[in-house]
């Protein structure tokens, strides 16, 4: 069936099987491979994207469920050449190793600091509790998300968070 999804601000139309998962629509049909797949049980969060601004696991939605809605993937985080504060903070605070969980972690973080400009460590850990990282041990991911929040509000709390 034919669907139209606004992907990173641009309307995209596709003719898809009703059973096609959103993550495959994004990766295979739209060619945006920054969204990853890590499991088949909704456990890992590697496939996280924002659906109308809210983090969702795109392996657990059908593509057709995104019809008429807007999806943000990791490719849509930076505006032009400029990194989103969450991207800059992940780089600065070594919030990634292999990079496989990173798009999902950053999108969850971006959505969190959008609604909570100064999350506590506990709030960050709760927000990323649906996302697994097998490399880093989470410490620097938490640091990076808090630093991004601070950078965004210009509160200068970056140093204390680090």
């Amino acid at each position: 069936m034919e669907i139209t999804v606004t992907v990173n601000g641009e309307p995209r139309t596709a003719d898809v099987e009703p059973r096609m998962l959103l993550v495959h629509l994004i990766r295979e049909t739209f060619g945006l491979t920054g969204t990853h797949i890590g499991c088949d049980t909704t456990s890992c969060g590697a496939c996280t994207v924002l659906l109308d601004g809210v983090p969702v696991k795109s392996c657990t939605l059908f593509g057709v469920q995104a019809d008429g809605r807007s999806v943000t993937t990791v490719e849509g985080l930076a505006s032009g050449g400029e990194l989103h504060p969450i991207q800059a903070a992940f780089k600065e605070h070594h919030g990634l190793q292999c990079g496989y969980c990173t798009p999902g972690m950053m999108l969850v973080g971006a959505a969190l600091i959008e609604r909570n400009p100064a999350p506590t460590e506990e709030e960050v850990r709760f927000a990323i509790s649906g996302n697994i990282c097998r490399c880093t041990g989470y410490m620097n991911i938490v640091k990076a998300i808090q630093a991004a929040a601070a950078a965004r509000t210009g509160s200068g709390a970056d140093e204390s968070a680090a």
Partner: peptide, 18 residues
């Protein structure tokens, strides 16, 4: 400075499934 971070944070890595 890790050389791979720039592509990973932009979703521009190339993993096998890509």
């Amino acid at each position: 400075r890790r050389v791979e971070d720039d592509r990973f944070i932009r979703g521009k890595g190339t993993y096998v499934d890509d």
